[in-house]
Computed example of a mutant assay.
Amino acid sequence: MLFVRLIEAVIAGVGGLPPVVSRPTDDLGTRSDTSRAIAFSDAVLAIIITLLVVDLRVPEVPPGRLLSGLLEQWPGYAAYLASYAYVAVVWLNHKGAFNRIRESDRGLHWVNLFVLFTTALLPFPTAVVSDALQEHDQQDQRVAVAFYALIGALLCVSWLTFFHYLSRRKDLLREGVSEGHFPAERVRALVGVILYVAAGLIGYLVAPLAGALVGIALRHHHRAAGGRTAVSPRRVRVTAVIRPKGDPR
């Protein structure tokens, strides 16, 4: 591909020869708008966020003990809220990223599928943490928190891959998107990997609660990823209106 582009550039630059038209079929089937990718991603994330509630069950208690049974399931509620917030942040960041993308290609579809794959794992560690906290076994709680942090780190790896791809494929982005946006988000994702690994180690080696609190605090780290401005200040154009002399306006 690079050799073909080089040949075209040489031919187009030769005096007296007309420029070579772009290849008519090279991108056929590989380039498209982002509507289908966004619709598919929204559907997958909606299913994931719905599956989180499946682990919340009616407690099996004798008559008259329903209230105490519901209260004893508080770890399940906490795990559900934490993972719901996580998926919500993923959706917001996904929306913010695709607002800056003009069209998709095959590589972008694959890295997007990687993000959805890792996000789809969240209901499983959520159920593991919920069960471990309700069983009150310290060793199981350490393993559960470390496992949840591992999935969080893997999710950050998928975002790292996603942002790295977009930082190298500026031709897919909308006009006016800051050149430093996706490289900066790539750094954010890398920091997330490191912090989740640290949270897992703290949860396993020090205290499960401490590791869980670090993981919850990381929601703020991810929350701002999709909210920063997409337009580079260098590309903002100010149009001056020139009025003829004597114009009362």
Score class of each variant (00 low, 15 high):
179 E>N: 15
119 T>Q: 03
173 L>I: 14
96 G>K: 05
146 A>T: 10
201 L>I: 15
204 Y>E: 01
130 S>A: 09
27 D>N: 08
134 Q>G: 11
52 L>Q: 13
12 A>R: 15
211 G>S: 05
202 I>A: 07
223 R>Q: 13
18 P>F: 06
34 T>Y: 00
13 G>L: 05
179 E>A: 15
32 S>G: 04
167 S>N: 08
34 T>W: 00
249 R>G: 14
89 V>M: 11
131 D>E: 06
35 S>H: 12
230 A>V: 04
138 Q>A: 14
92 L>G: 12
205 L>M: 10
96 G>T: 10
102 R>A: 13
166 L>V: 08
58 V>G: 01
31 R>I: 15
136 H>D: 11
128 V>E: 04
25 T>V: 05
22 S>T: 08
249 R>A: 14
117 F>N: 12
180 G>L: 10
142 R>K: 07
140 D>L: 07
179 E>P: 12
109 H>D: 09
17 L>R: 12
73 Q>E: 12
8 E>W: 06
175 E>H: 12
143 V>A: 11
124 F>W: 07
88 A>M: 05
184 A>F: 05
113 L>N: 12
90 V>T: 08
233 P>K: 04
174 R>F: 00
33 D>T: 13
214 V>L: 13
87 V>C: 08
245 K>Y: 08
25 T>H: 12
183 P>M: 00
206 V>T: 13
237 R>C: 08
